[in-house]
Simulated scan of single mutants.
Amino acid sequence: MREIIFDTETTGLDPKTGDRMVEIGCIEMVNRVLTGESFHAYYNPERDMPAEAEKVHGLSASFLSDKPLFKDGAQDLLAFLGDAPLVAHNAQFDFGFLNYELETLGLEPVSHDRMVDTLAIARRRHPGAKHSLDALCSRYGVDRSHRVLHGALLDAELLAQVYVELMGGRQIGLQLAADNTQEERVETAVFAPKTGEYRAPRPHAANKEELARHAAFLESLDSPLWTS
């Protein structure tokens, strides 16, 4: 299954009050494994950058002034997203800005049916704990030492690792495989923990005496449920 983990940086909190998306970073995963494919872009918001927002991501109006407008790269972004589920942390926020930009251009917004919100998943898995991306990185041992400021692509890369852990960890991709031509059984010696002495595996099948006792016990039951 193909999924896109993404993050955005913006000029503020609400596109309806004039805030704009200024950066988007997307990471592709297939079956919860990174493919190495990504999409990253900065956008000129055609407005000033509030000091509070610049403190978060470090993107100044001067830096963004020569970047393309969202409309110039919208089709490239949509082509990368395809029809895959979109994973984001506090996804309502990121979907809100992405869809505002799309709708401004008269394009179809991304359906919320494709939304996977890791914040909601984290709240269910760890009630009462901290659920910020930083806190989840600490919980799952994801190295974020290089994260001085927020950055859409960097945060998407961190979130991809957190997402794998939230969904079951590295073992999610491990499956038992059966050989279609020959089934092999490997008997492993069991060693006593202290002496290293060989100890044969214990038999687990019931012997004749145990089977007889079990049958007698069943006969002694008065109107068992399985005979009703």
Rank of each mutant, 00 (worst) to 15 (best):
L176S: 14
A152T: 02
F191Q: 03
R185E: 09
G169N: 08
L174D: 05
E23C: 07
D143L: 08
Y163G: 06
L158D: 03
Q75S: 12
S111Y: 01
N207S: 13
L166M: 10
L59E: 09
C137Q: 13
Y163P: 04
A178F: 14
T11I: 11
H112E: 14
F80L: 01
M49K: 00
A91I: 09
E46K: 14
L149K: 15
E209M: 07
T118S: 05
S145Y: 01
N90A: 07
E23H: 00
L158C: 09
V190H: 09
K71Y: 08
H204K: 11
F93H: 04
L158I: 06
E108F: 05
N31V: 02
A212P: 00
T195G: 12
E101W: 04
V116L: 12
K71G: 00
I24L: 01
E3P: 05
A178H: 14
K67M: 07
T188H: 08
K208Y: 03
E165T: 01
G12M: 13
I121D: 06
E28W: 13
S228G: 15
E9Y: 01
D83N: 15
A189S: 02
A215E: 14
V116T: 13
R185H: 13
E28M: 13
S62E: 15
G18L: 11
Y100N: 12
Y42W: 11
L149E: 03
A79G: 10
A88V: 06
G168K: 01
M49H: 06
F217S: 04
S111R: 06
G169C: 11
G128C: 07
R123Y: 05
D117S: 06
L64T: 08
V190Q: 06
Q175I: 10
C26L: 11
L119Q: 02
P201I: 00
G106Y: 07
T8Q: 00
D134Q: 15
L166E: 06
T104M: 13
H146V: 04
Q171G: 06
R139H: 14
D66H: 14
I4M: 07
P68R: 07
T11Y: 08
E165P: 01
S60M: 09
G25Y: 11
G18P: 11
T227A: 15
H89R: 04
L225Y: 10
A61M: 06
P201E: 02
T181H: 09
K67G: 08
D72M: 00
G58A: 13
L158W: 02
L119A: 05
D143K: 09
D179S: 15
P68A: 05
A79L: 03
R2F: 11
T10F: 11
A84K: 03
P50D: 03
P68W: 01
T35L: 11
L154Y: 10
R147D: 12
E9W: 04
I4A: 08
L34K: 14
P50I: 08
E101G: 09
R147P: 09
H150P: 10
S223Q: 13
F39I: 04
N90Y: 12
G58R: 08
A205S: 14
N44A: 08
E46T: 00
V22G: 03
G25E: 04
Y163V: 03
A88M: 07
L59I: 07
V186M: 10
Y43S: 05
S65L: 08
